[in-house]
Design a protein around this nucleic acid. Structure first.
Length: 249
DNA sequence: TAGGCCATCTGGTCCT
DNA sequence: AGGACCAGATGGCCTA
């Protein structure tokens, strides 16, 4: 992937001029005002009345065209960098997703990554709730001591006050740690509907897999459909296979 | 070959 | 004034 502005992928200098001409009347920002002004001079060459100071004028035009290009390249470079940073963040998100990684596995698309991440977070939340419930049951009478994440004696920010038993699980930030802490979550069914053709190796449940009462089961048999109100726009999911479309219904 | 995904360019808008 | 962010447009690559 080249990030060079001279990339064959995109606009040529001709396109620059074309776009500038196309939008001459709607340009308003400061930089673009400059572009407009410069381009007006550029366009004036067509019906150009030869100016008395011909050489001087020519020099001025050349400078402005160079400035246009320089400005454009500068802006394009910033935008490119911004998008690259965005893609890096997207890669970082892919890395922590409970999904098979490897050269033979096709990369999740951006939309798939975002949707999977959302589902993953929802599943972790429900797992956490269930853990709290189970721990509460185990501790019976002390249930109220840490119910809803509150530990006795701590009134501030209950969301971060949890029972020590849950500490390691809750402090996990990577899927690997999560899965070792929560054996029931050793794997999550691949989002087949979001995968491109590359057949991701079906995520096998580890030998230690066991069904946790109340926990969303990650196995391919019990896998619950994606959480209810996922706004699956037709725009974002146009690549669904018919099979997966059925699943989504 | 159509459709999906992506990178890039571009203009507009908002913010600092 | 300059930069960040956003959305639309465009064209290339890939796959079914």
């Amino acid at each position: 992937m080249h990030s060079d502005s001279s990339s064959s992928r995109s606009s040529s200098p001709d396109m620059v001029g074309m776009h500038i001409r196309d939008h001459l009347n709607s340009v308003s920002s400061t930089q673009n005002e400059l572009l407009q002004k410069m381009t007006s001079e550029h366009l004036s060459r067509h019906g150009e009345k030869t100016s008395p100071g011909g050489s001087k004028y020519k020099l001025k035009k050349q400078v402005t065209e160079q400035e246009i290009q320089h400005l454009r390249l500068k802006i394009n470079g910033r935008e490119r960098k911004r998008m690259h940073d965005l893609n890096l963040a997207m890669d970082g998100l892919r890395e922590v997703m409970p999904y098979a990684h490897g050269p033979s596995v096709r990369k999740l698309s951006k939309i798939a990554t975002l949707l999977l991440a959302r589902n993953y977070i929802l599943m972790l939340n429900s797992s956490l709730d269930e853990m709290k419930r189970l721990v509460g049951e185990i501790y019976g009478g002390h249930h109220s001591a840490f119910h809803c994440g509150t530990v006795s004696g701590h009134s501030g920010n209950p969301a971060h006050q949890v029972h020590p038993l849950l500490g390691s699980a809750l402090s996990s930030s990577t899927s690997s740690t999560i899965t070792t802490t929560l054996p029931g979550l050793t794997s999550i069914r691949a989002p087949h509907s979001l995968m491109k053709s590359a057949p991701a190796p079906p995520l096998q449940l580890g030998s230690g897999f066991q069904h946790w009462a109340g926990l969303p089961c990650p196995c391919t048999i019990c896998q619950v459909p994606p959480p209810p109100h996922i706004p699956i726009s037709s725009a974002g999911m146009t690549r669904l296979t018919s099979e997966n479309k059925d699943v989504m219904k």
